[in-house]
Design a protein around this nucleic acid. Structure first.
Ligand SMILES: [Mn+2]
Ligand SMILES: [Mn+2]
Ligand SMILES: [Zn+2]
Ligand SMILES: [Zn+2]
Lengths: 142, 142
DNA sequence: CATCAATCTGGACTTTGTCTAATTTCCGGA
DNA sequence: TCCGGAAATTAGACAAAGTCCAGATTGATG
């Protein structure tokens, strides 16, 4: 019998997670990572900003943007571009796709292991795939 | 023997195209449609603005944005969201996917008839698919 | 010509994101 | 403990994309 324990993303765990991705774990970075990983949701910079500064202001706008960009470069989070007005940051870096509810703006994951994409043409020479984004846009039936 | 003639998107043809999509063909709308359809390229609002106002200023920013939104609502053009900083408008409304060169920002079409996507999970109840966007992000090999 | 609806316009405004110069924090060595 | 420098953070100015609105223009109709 195997017992699966769900990972708890506590602030303490965040320091190790950051170090594991070659990121110096500062107070602000830990808070921002915690906002994303404890929720396991797709958040915009604005939302991260609001979460991190709920009780009392602790992190500046510049730091939120700088930190999310750093996380992205280090492969700790992923960017999701579905909404023309803002970028979402995704703590789930395993290959997966997205379901986007256009009216509400709700964004959820689609497991990639079930999905197969075939028949893509060969890439132009000298090009390498950085990623394949599949977005299913849905809306409520009228 | 069948002779295929390539459609020429002249300004004169634009009026009919617009009427066919239930759009009153004004001078500005004809110019904007012509910018998109004569090139058959993915253009941002900014680029449309520049094209339409090359010789002498004839169309305001507000009208460019309003018109592109109108074209979108009427199904004359399609929106492509790949770049976090701007929306592209696509005169090709037939089902197709996109190849996005992340460094240069170059965007090109992938014919959808060759590509198959299988294994997508069923939609949540009360939801209907508005579209499936597949974006292949590529970059130059280092 | 007068009227009215549709369209277009300049420009103020908002939102998202970037940049920079000054400050604060952190750490290792004297 | 004190010092110096590197790394990180900050406030706020700035830029770019897009929205909004009140007034002007256009064009059809009687
Ligand atoms: Mn990782
Ligand atoms: Mn059409
Ligand atoms: Zn996701
Ligand atoms: Zn296209």
């Amino acid at each position: 019998m195997i017992i699966m324990t769900r990972m708890h993303y506590t602030r303490d765990n965040m320091a190790g997670l950051l170090r594991g991705h070659d990121i110096n774990p500062t107070h602000q970075r830990i808070e921002i990572a915690h906002a994303l990983f404890s929720r396991q949701e797709h958040l915009s910079a604005d939302q991260v900003m609001a979460i991190v500064n709920t009780r009392h202001s602790e992190t500046s706008k510049a730091t939120v943007y700088n930190t999310l960009k750093l996380f992205l470069e280090k492969g700790l989070v992923r960017e999701v571009i579905v909404d023309p007005s803002k970028v979402f940051y995704d703590p789930n870096t395993s290959p997966h796709h997205h379901l986007y509810e256009v009216d509400s703006g709700k964004l959820s994951d689609i497991d990639a292991t079930q999905v197969q994409i075939s028949g893509l043409p060969p890439l132009p020479a000298g090009m390498v795939t950085e990623g394949i984004d599949l977005i299913v846009r849905v809306r409520r039936t009228d």
